[in-house]
């Protein structure tokens, strides 16, 4: 049997050699980076959930305020322009969402009433409720608008 030339034989040194400290450290750093990536993904998912929760509170407050405005005397509706309203928290407690810094009345909600049109004594207003808040993560703004006329 013809023997293989020395160069063609597998080098036992390279095949049996373990990982060096540098290789091991690089591998560990890679694992740490991967874990950190997964962790940051989970954290951002959680943050997104909180933002969603805050949006739900803002939306409910806007909708409820609009319904309450339907109940007020129509003549007094324009006087409510630029007034604020609170956003109840997850358990109905006041100040569920913090207002922006420097907010004049300390309430995150704002009512805007503008004349839409007036035809032969019938008046129609555009009413907008807006919540601007400084949230647990990045804060946000939500607004809702509808038309209101006098009910006869």
């Amino acid at each position: 049997m013809r023997e293989l030339p020395v160069e063609a034989r597998p080098d036992p040194r390279t095949s049996e050699r373990g990982a060096s400290l540098v290789e091991l450290t690089v591998m560990l750093v890679s694992v740490v980076v991967l874990l950190a990536g997964a962790l940051s993904g989970a954290v951002s998912h959680s943050a997104q959930r909180r933002v969603h929760g805050e949006q739900i509170l803002a939306m409910a407050a806007c909708r409820n305020t609009l319904e309450q405005l339907r109940g007020v005397d129509f003549e007094t509706l324009p006087s409510l322009h630029n007034t604020g309203f609170d956003v109840p928290g997850t358990n109905g407690q006041p100040k569920g969402l913090p207002p922006l810094e420097g907010d004049s009345d300390g309430l995150p909600g704002r009512i805007a009433v503008q004349l839409n049109r007036s035809v032969s004594g019938a008046v129609l207003y555009t009413v907008r409720t807006t919540v601007t808040w400084r949230g647990a993560t990045r804060g946000g703004e939500f607004s809702m608008e509808c038309l209101m006329g006098e009910r006869r």
């Binding site: 409910a60 909708r63 409820n64 319904e67 309450q68 339907r70 997850t90 358990n91 109905g92």
Partner: peptide, 13 residues
């Protein structure tokens, strides 16, 4: 116990 509530306001027409 952590408590939660949700409010819905309606104007009855």
């Amino acid at each position: 116990i952590q408590r939660f509530s949700s409010e819905e306001t309606l104007y009855l027409r």
